[in-house]
Design a binder for these strands. Structure first.
Lengths: 344, 344
DNA sequence: CGCGAGTATGACAGCGTTGCCAGCGCTAGC
DNA sequence: GCTAGCGCTGGCAACGCTGTCATACTCGCG
């Protein structure tokens, strides 16, 4: 057993510490867990010994003995690196503040076995709780199974699912409503929409909020289907800009498709925002990199992740204390891609 | 104890299975671990019982008993969501094929305590091995400590560090050399460079390869400092395009800065690729979303991650079998932002 | 001066698995 | 016919912690 703090052997155990400090392992354990009823002098001696031997407790053994693994997992699909990465940042940060580690478990949204897959993952890894990211968080079967297993979970989504013991709901509908109203206020009347994948609840929310803000129903040919991918945005933009009466404003349900609109507009010499206003959703990196910079809607992803994680850890600490679903208001980021329509 | 595959209690243990199958727990364990010397009939009975009870072994207990946690970790900074996410995808995929889970441990590149932080993380979590992503993989103190602890690690970087028991080295220098030569072949003579952060080895490599390809030394005022961020790209592009003799080609050391060049060029009505060719590095999502689409260099990130993970798992299985460092060749992706210079 | 209550510590038994070794029955070899 | 050797199985002791309960000691109060 190597001595000294640096490079101490990985195999220093609680027994070594107890022996060196002249106390029982139970007392060392108490010090480690900041339990009450330890004498000041004893605590001091133990801490010094721990330091001297370079001991760190084995999370494995602790897990087995205490029934808690100090591991939480994040369940994610990854259609959008920007979103995942911002969320992960908030989760990990909160985890490490509380002595937890984060395990990532990617899944595929379309997989019919997805709930079974998550269940088997939880059984194997024995994580203490899960955070489920969108769009996977829209699948009710997952929280249903987790609750049945007695494993706490928090979902982050745009709609509230009763199956989740706790959720963080971002009000995407409200935000797109606000965006829609803003376009109308600016004087736009020929307003078009590029939708997200129809089986995503978030896409439905964004559409519903936006449409509700318009003074009259949107004509069918102004509603284009998209799948959040760049190619689909290109196709939709081509279709819209080829119309006899092209729109003066387009809301694409994410920034990637909005970027595609900008590209098509540029190729066709349609001036943005003069002839055409364009708005996106997500405030991803590209929103400020394209020309003109995109007006878009921002979700405070990292903060949401932090909040979700705090909630999850609270549920783990107190399995009975109910955690309410919380709603998050989003903000409209105004940049250069939206302006009043030019007079013709 | 609930019966049936779906929703079986989390607390079915190996004892329950052994009892139900009429064998000892040791035999169940053997079946679980695909150990030899188990009778066909016995194995069949045990497997059926496992299935019937919906049993899955506790990774925690297994970790304690076997000395292996079946957890590996990825150490990452996250300057670039695209890169991290592509790498993570490859790692996780390989992990789950081999029954491992992935723990993420984010760090900050500039943190002077970074090696100590990683060490303490490893001690606590007792992961079986680590994959270190760039740019953190350029810090030699990290593999040095890990090796001392006896924990296998694999680094992914643009340069080979002898401290790593195994590395995956992407030949960024070779790739930017090729890009430089290509620009020269096209007839460019006034060629400029926007560098990455000087303390990143990758940035040094990209610069060195590119400069080596040019027929003569690059004038100082054509070499602009950047930090891989969009803002720094804007500033560098402004400086370059304000020169009396502006360059006819700019290589920005990542796509984000290259996108910034495009934005500035557009604002100044500099035609790309006619008056100015622009190249980036990474082939990130935005490379194909900007107008014109960027010529850039692609690292096969997901494949690299898979390979690194396979290597790590092999090292875990056989701690003595040396794993050589491997070099990866990168490919030049030609899009619309590069063309021969216009005759003047 | 005795006793109850509170504080500090330790002994012991798990937690759910695997490592190690012993032992069973059977076959092959002399 | 006896034994060595092999295939299969089980018993027991870890692995490094925490939970629970017991114990020793201290203090204050009637």
């Amino acid at each position: 057993m190597v001595q000294g703090e640096f490079g101490a052997a990985l195999s220093v155990t609680i027994d070594d510490v107890a022996q060196a400090a002249g106390v029982s392992i139970r007392t060392v354990s108490r010090v480690l867990n900041k339990a009450p009823n330890v004498g000041d002098q004893t605590r001091k001696t133990v801490l010094e010994t721990i330091d001297k031997l370079g001991y760190s407790p084995s999370i494995r053994a602790r897990a087995l003995a205490s029934g808690r693994s100090f591991l939480i997992a994040v369940v994610q699909d990854d259609p959008n690196a920007h979103v995942i990465s911002a969320l992960q940042r908030g989760i990990v940060e909160t985890c490490s503040r509380h002595g937890y580690e984060l395990v990532v478990h990617p899944v595929r949204f379309g997989d019919p076995e997805i709930a079974a897959d998550v269940e088997s993952f939880v059984r194997r890894s024995r994580v203490d709780g899960l955070i489920v990211l969108p769009p996977t968080s829209e699948i009710a079967a997952i929280p249903a199974r987790l609750t049945q297993l007695g494993v706490p979970s928090v979902g982050i989504a745009s709609v509230s699912l009763p199956e989740y013991p706790s959720m963080l709901v971002s009000d995407e509908r409200g935000a797109t409503f606000e965006l829609g109203r803003r376009l109308v206020e600016l004087g736009h009347r020929r307003i078009a929409l590029i939708e997200g994948p129809p089986h995503f609840r978030s896409a439905q929310e964004r559409r519903a909020g936006f449409l509700a803000a318009l003074p009259e129903p949107m004509p069918e040919h102004y509603r284009q289907k998209g799948d959040y991918g760049f190619e689909s945005g290109l196709a939709a933009a081509e279709a819209l800009l080829s119309l006899d009466q092209p729109p003066t404003a387009i809301f694409a349900c994410n920034d990637i498709m909005a970027a595609a609109v900008l590209k098509v507009a540029r190729e066709r010499d349609v001036r943005v925002p003069g002839q055409l206003s364009v708005a996106g959703f997500d405030d991803s990196d590209i929103a400020s990199m394209v020309t003109p910079a995109l007006t878009t809607i921002r979700r405070p992803l990292t903060d949401m992740a932090r909040l979700a994680t705090e909630t999850l850890l609270a549920m783990i600490d107190d399995p009975n204390g109910a955690q309410p679903h919380k709603s998050i208001t989003l903000s409209l980021i105004q940049r250069q891609s939206v302006a009043p329509p030019e007079k013709t």
